[in-house]
Design a protein around this nucleic acid. Structure first.
Length: 508
RNA sequence: GGUCCGUUCGUCUAACGGUUAGGACGCCAGGUUUUCAUCCUGGUAAUAGGGGUUCGAUUCCCCUACGGACUACCA
């Protein structure tokens, strides 16, 4: 078997969305699984759609999720350059080769002329096709004399080079996911291979580059399936049939609600990110949210994405990247499109946050604290994390569920006050305060024992006492266990909060 | 419209001719609990429809329906 070499080949027309990220991920997993190479090629042959910043965005996104390239625009490699606009001289010679062997031809029809032909067909409820049926009635080197063609070319007239699709042939594409896909050549059209601006179209460029870069497997989105027969034809015409890569067309990612391909606009409309990283549109300034900024861990993100369209055949659902590499196989990629489920994405993240070590969690929380201008001892941050981590679904929840540890409550939740505050409450609090003061080892176990025996001895309600304590410590009815809160807060701060509340309410 | 691809619980999916059609998310109920979560237990819910082939179809074939992609000098 030849060396596995696969590529991720996005065009820099904007941010990569999760469908594209998944394509990159599957390519990466496949490459690593087979000890092969993974490379990043930028397909920017359409300069009209170029978006500044998109290329860097793509690179940063893949770096964030832990995908490393062996070769690519950003790191070079033995087949450089890896940006198609830097390879423009290469493509022309192959177009000329096709011209020479009669599998391509010059065409001089203007865009306006073609537009009119399409519109005319449309009114007759037909589809205009520049192909075997029509090419002999159009302005090209098939219908014009050699001298006329020469004259046109020399006069600097705009031209394109189109592929000459054969008639009455069945073209077969072998697909690793779908099996055999065959198409009648009469239904294909004479696609433009080389544009009048001197750059190739995707069809020519991807075939030439995949061949030159010795790509062994083309793993890409299903939207390319209809043009795969053309690519097969091109390999044949170029004489590279024996070195043609194998194809695998991945099913699409669909919107969570209704149907249709997940698109860049869907995300914030439906309340979840579609992009790995936040993106600011350079033209409009519009901001689209990203998984990273929303508080997802990259490990959770790729785990979720990997299982969207692929499964290991076992009931295992949690995979680290190295486990994904080990378990991945293209045969276990499904054929049908997958609807993206934001709830499941959250579940994965929640799971991964729970798996994180206290040290790691503390680092994440400390970053948020620093942003808020709060500076505290790391040991304290760790303690906080150890009692709050399991209730955090997204990273920002680490703060949302623990802020009262760093800032004493300024106001008390009115509803909770009404429910639990009684005239005798201040006295009760002072009593508990006295008991707490006596505890030498301020551990949550000791605190718990002391409070419980106090409740028992005085025949008080557990809920009444605990909820009141909770109220004065955190300002509402949320957070971890009361004993844990007291222990983490420490004796001094706990007593202060209890006194403050007792005094404040005494005056009411 | 044409071509191609697809179709198992609401969602992601397993079952490569023989299973009480399995798991996960969600949802519901119960348990644990001082709140909210976590956690544990249980429940809910699917083979699009119709024909074949076969002793036997989720699984193989055909038709229909539905969905999607493609149909540019875009990728």
């Amino acid at each position: 078997m030849r060396e596995v070499r696969v590529r991720f080949a996005p065009s820099p027309t904007g941010p990569l969305h999760i469908g594209g990220v998944r394509t990159a991920l599957y390519n990466y997993l496949f490459a690593k699984k087979h000890k092969g190479k993974f490379l990043l090629r930028i397909e920017d042959t359409d300069q009209t759609r170029f978006v500044p910043g998109a290329e860097d965005y793509i690179i940063e996104s893949l770096k964030w999720i832990g995908i490393h390239f062996d070769e690519g625009v950003h790191i070079g490699g033995p087949f450089a350059p890896y940006r198609q606009s830097d390879r423009r001289e290469i493509y022309h010679q192959y177009a000329l080769q096709l011209l020479k062997n009669g599998t391509a031809y010059y065409a001089f029809d203007t865009p306006e002329e073609l537009d009119r032909l399409r519109k005319d067909s449309e009114t007759r409820k037909e589809t205009f096709q520049y192909g075997p049926q029509t090419r002999l009635g159009l302005k090209n080197s098939l219908t014009m004399s050699e001298t006329d063609v020469k004259a046109m070319l020399e006069s600097g007239e705009h031209y394109v080079i189109r592929v000459k699709i054969p008639e009455n042939e069945t073209i077969v594409v072998q697909d690793l996911i779908r099996g055999e896909v065959s198409v009648d050549s009469n239904l294909l059209d004479d696609k433009v291979l080389f544009k009048s601006d001197g750059l190739p179209t995707y069809h020519l460029a991807n075939v030439v580059d995949d061949y030159l870069m010795k790509i062994s497997h083309v793993i890409r989105g299903e939207e390319w399936l209809p043009s795969a027969p053309l690519h097969v034809l091109l390999y044949r015409y170029l004489g590279w049939e024996t070195e043609m890569p194998e194809f695998a067309h991945l099913p699409l990612l669909l919107k969570p609600e209704g149907n249709g391909k997940l698109s860049k606009r869907d995300g914030d409309r439906l309340g979840f990110p579609v992009f790995p990283l936040q993106w600011t549109d350079p033209k409009t300034g519009d901001i689209s949210s990203g998984y990273r900024e929303t508080g997802y861990l990259p490990e959770a993100f790729i785990n979720m994405l990997a299982l969207l369209g692929w499964n290991p055949g076992t009931e295992q659902e949690i995979f680290r990247m190295d486990q994904l590499i080990e378990a991945f196989s293209i045969e276990r990629v499904g054929k049908s499109g997958s609807k993206f489920d934001p709830e499941k994405a959250k579940w994965f993240n929640h799971h991964y946050i729970k798996m994180l070590s206290v040290d790691h969690l503390a680092l994440l929380l400390n970053k948020i604290l620093t942003e808020k201008g709060i500076e505290v001892d790391m040991e304290f941050v760790k303690k906080v994390c150890s009692v709050t981590s399991e209730r955090a679904v997204l990273i920002p929840d680490l703060w949302e569920h623990s802020s009262f540890f760093f800032q004493a409550p300024k106001v008390y939740d009115e509803k909770v006050v009404q429910k639990f505050w009684k005239p005798e409450t201040p006295a009760l609090l002072e009593k508990i305060g006295l008991l707490l003061r006596e505890i030498s080892d301020f551990s949550s176990e000791n605190i718990d024992a002391v409070i419980k025996s106090f409740i028992f001895e005085n025949s008080l309600g557990m809920g009444q006492v605990m909820n009141t304590l909770r109220l004065v410590l955190v300002g509402g009815s949320f957070g971890p266990g009361v004993a844990s809160i007291l222990s983490v807060l420490g004796k001094q701060e706990s007593l202060q909060r209890i006194h403050k509340a007792a005094n404040q309410f005494m005056q009411l």
